Simulated scan of single mutants.
Amino acid sequence: MSNTSGDQGNRHPRGSAGPHGADGAGGTAGLAGKRVLITGGTRGLGREIVRLLAGEGVRVATCARGEGDLRALRAALGGPEPDRLLTRALDLTEPERLEDFVAAAAKRFSGLDGVVACAGGSRGRGLEESGADDWAAAWELNVHHAVRLVRAAVPHLRAAGGGSVVLVSSISGWKPGPYAQYGTAKAAQIHLAASLARELGPDGIRVNAVSPGSMLIPGRRWDRMRREEPEAYAAFAAAELPAGEPVAPQEVARVVAFLLSDWSSGISGAHLPVDRAQNAPSPDGY
């Protein structure tokens, strides 16, 4: 499939299955040949999304703060050819850096078919322990970063005849738990997806939100708790995880890939929890 801006391979009538659609031809749900930009693609869920998409023949652009993490990602993917993977070290909160990267990715790949706002984070603690700067940082990392990403990508998605946007929210965005600034920002992402789906729908651009539960990622909170505090982890799993363990990042990545694919052409404005029916977001819940 050609990746030129005039290529018709990624254009299809709204509601159709597309060139690799429901007939089962091609790669997984018609992902092969697509051009997708993902923020925060070197660790955890972001890394799994990049790995999965690259393995399905997707041209991938991703960014992260550390050049070392990006080098490790490229090595883990087997050193893809430059026209298959574009990486850049940048701070998403710096003005115009994200927008410049979106433009660079669209130029390298001759367009874009999808974007994933995966980067995010939390600042501060409880209400009385957190200041305005903590709330502003949580908003910037999660909501404003997603807004800037979509706004920069829209002209390229429109030029491709439409596309898919996935905002990675969190179980904390719809089930209350500490801390409010993080949960509020993630709830805003869910609303943002529903609102932008209506606004951008006439251009054939779909927007959806995915809310992972507590993911079991090596070296992160739940993995450390399982190894260092096995009794506390077992109590958390018994009380909040009906499946007995947290969702794996690979499981969430598959849902994101589906939403980027032609097979999800009828889904827009949706909020998809991927949490194995988890109850509270953490053992520190209210």
Rank of each mutant, 00 (worst) to 15 (best):
S195E: 12
G114P: 11
R97I: 00
G162R: 01
R206Q: 09
A146I: 13
V210C: 02
L112Y: 01
P82F: 04
I205T: 08
R88L: 06
L196M: 14
D134A: 15
P273G: 05
G111V: 12
H156N: 02
Q250N: 05
R14W: 05
L31R: 06
Q8Y: 09
S130M: 11
G163E: 10
L90Q: 06
A238I: 07
N3F: 09
G79I: 02
R226Y: 09
G33I: 04
A234G: 07
L196V: 07
I217M: 06
P212N: 11
R47Q: 10
V154G: 08
A257R: 01
P283E: 04
H271E: 08
V247G: 04
A75R: 10
L200T: 12
E231T: 12
G266M: 03
S264H: 04
E99Y: 12
A137W: 09
L53A: 13
V210G: 03
L98R: 05
S211V: 14
P246E: 09
T93K: 06
G173H: 11
A25C: 08
L260Q: 15
P246V: 10
I205F: 07
A232P: 02
M215D: 08
G21C: 10
G131K: 08
T87C: 06
G266W: 05
A119T: 14
A160P: 09
G213P: 05
A106T: 01
T4I: 13
R224I: 13
G15I: 05
W222I: 14
D133A: 15
L192S: 07
R35Q: 11
S268A: 13
E94S: 10
D133S: 15
G177F: 07
P273R: 09
A159K: 00
A153M: 03
E199P: 02
S2Q: 06
S5R: 14
A64E: 03
I171Q: 13
A138L: 08
F258M: 05
P82W: 04
F258R: 03
G78R: 10
A188Y: 06
T39G: 00
V143W: 04
R158D: 08
W222Y: 15
V115Y: 01
P273H: 01
G27Q: 06
Y233I: 03
